[in-house]
Design a protein around this nucleic acid. Structure first.
Length: 389
RNA sequence: GGGGGUGCGCCGGAGUUGGAGAGCCGGGCCAGACUGUAAAUCUGGUGUUUCGACUGAAUAGGUUCGAAUCCUAUCACCCCCA
């Protein structure tokens, strides 16, 4: 199948094009097109909350490990550097000098993670800033306006990411509120055009905690909204993996086949393969970068805690089959040394390594989807990924 | 050479009026956790043990019902004088 031909033909009309669906699995390969470039799916999107994928430079992401798209965060960028600077700089792409696609989270995750610093009402959410305690009011409308100024290619609806556990009555009430907020998001989105001159895709989000009937209801609800990206939120917040997989499976069975599905905040390499298998196209997660800073490296041979004393005098390459040249350029013993003495180069190497690992994992998954060998490949891969070295 | 002071657990610090030390703070070390980033963070462990206990306040003695604390000697380090 000639992806380039399909892509160039369709580009003007739609933003997401499904290239291939495998036969024995729900796994798909596709292309999400934006005015800042194409994203081949399945894709992992490195998280760059504050306008930086922590420890990595933009040219490393774009030129060395071929990251197609990164994330930013509405709440965090709104607080610092603030909307005035964001507007004067010409938007996040220009501010950070990244000319590829960007997706911004709406701050819905902060409704969850800053649970003790915010108050939710029908109107919106008031946050007490985690920096100085100052009060900031977010509404579906203001969050749309902020994301217009930031200027990401994909912007997220404002939602409440519910915690786990979450009783069914609260989950239902919250889901309905998120649905009402979704209407307000789309209304505001329709009222204003892009500030920086490129198209922005507004992605609605499924909620409903771990309750199948709510998830079904929510997936059906958001499907009525026109978009190229449909997201699943409120998962990977502490629920058992089986619940996460079951909810994902349920949602992808309802969301439009021809549109991209984005599972927010997931996850481990194993989670990614399991969820690709259940029909997910897009992922983001802080795990590869945070774990890298904390010394945990994902490799083809298994998971390494590079801080462990067992690597003290192991002068073998960091990862002989690694996806980036740093994996062969430095030894395990050296990277462990950098962590031991608190030199940030260790975190930079580890971050580059982990993101390269995730991105290659997605490219491999895509290749195996395209030649219909995903299921058998995944089975073998899961065994490797579970090993703890 | 004389005088004074201080000595504890991997390291540093605090604490000690003769009344129960495996005890406090920091560091190091050893592990673990982390999922739309309040995170280069957080949590736990760090004498031996057969899990009942045992040993333990520089070293060796002594006084005492009881000593990290008082006494003697020795050793080490610090300060002052010569």
């Amino acid at each position: 199948m000639d992806e380039c031909f399909i892509h160039t033909t369709i580009l003007a009309l739609v933003s997401f094009q499904l290239i291939h669906t495998a036969t024995s699995t729900k796994a798909r390969a596709g292309i999400l097109s934006t005015e800042h470039g194409d994203v081949l799916t399945p894709i992992f999107m490195p998280v760059g909350t504050l306008g930086t994928v922590k420890k990595l430079q933009q040219y490393e992401l774009s030129e060395e490990i071929q990251a197609d798209i990164i994330l930013g965060n509405t709440y965090h960028l709104y607080l610092r550097p603030g909307m005035d600077l964001m507007e004067r700089s010409g938007g996040l792409h220009k501010f950070i000098n990244w000319d590829r696609p960007i997706l911004t989270d709406s701050g819905g995750y902060q409704v969850y993670s800053l649970g003790d610093r915010r108050k939710i009402t029908e109107e919106g959410v008031t946050f007490a800033s985690h920096i100085d305690g100052s009060k900031h009011h977010f509404t579906p409308e203001s969050v749309m306006d902020i994301q217009r100024v930031i200027g990401a290619d994909v912007i997220m609806a404002f939602d409440e990411c519910t915690p786990y556990p979450c009783d069914e009555n609260y989950a239902r009430m919250s889901m309905h509120m998120t649905h009402r907020w979704l209407e307000r998001c789309f209304d505001q989105y329709a009222k204003r055009n892009s500030i920086h001159g490129h198209r922005q895709i507004l992605a609605p989000i499924v909620q409903g905690s771990v309750y199948p009937s709510l998830r079904k209801q929510s997936a059906e609800y958001i499907t009525r909204k026109e978009s190229d990206v449909y997201a699943i939120g409120g998962l990977s917040v502490g629920e058992p993996h089986e619940d996460m997989y079951a909810m994902t499976d349920l949602c992808t069975s309802i969301l439009p086949e021809s549109k991209a599905r984005y599972l927010m905040g997931v996850g481990t390499p194993m989670n990614l393969l399991e969820c690709i298998d259940r029909g997910i196209d897009m992922f983001d997660c802080v795990l590869p970068t945070r774990n890298a800073r904390h010394g945990l490296l994902y490799t083809n041979n298994g998971i390494i805690n590079i801080k462990n004393s067992k690597w003290k005098a192991d002068f073998s390459q960091l990862d002989e089959t690694g996806a980036h040249r740093v994996d062969r350029f430095y030894s395990k013993a050296y990277v462990r040394h950098l962590f031991s003495v608190g030199e940030s180069l260790g975190q930079q190497i580890a971050s580059l390594h982990n993101i390269a690992f995730y991105l290659r994992l997605m490219r491999e998954a895509r290749a195996h989807i395209l030649d219909d060998t995903f299921s058998s490949w995944k089975k073998d891969k899961l065994v490797q990924l579970a090993i703890r070295l």
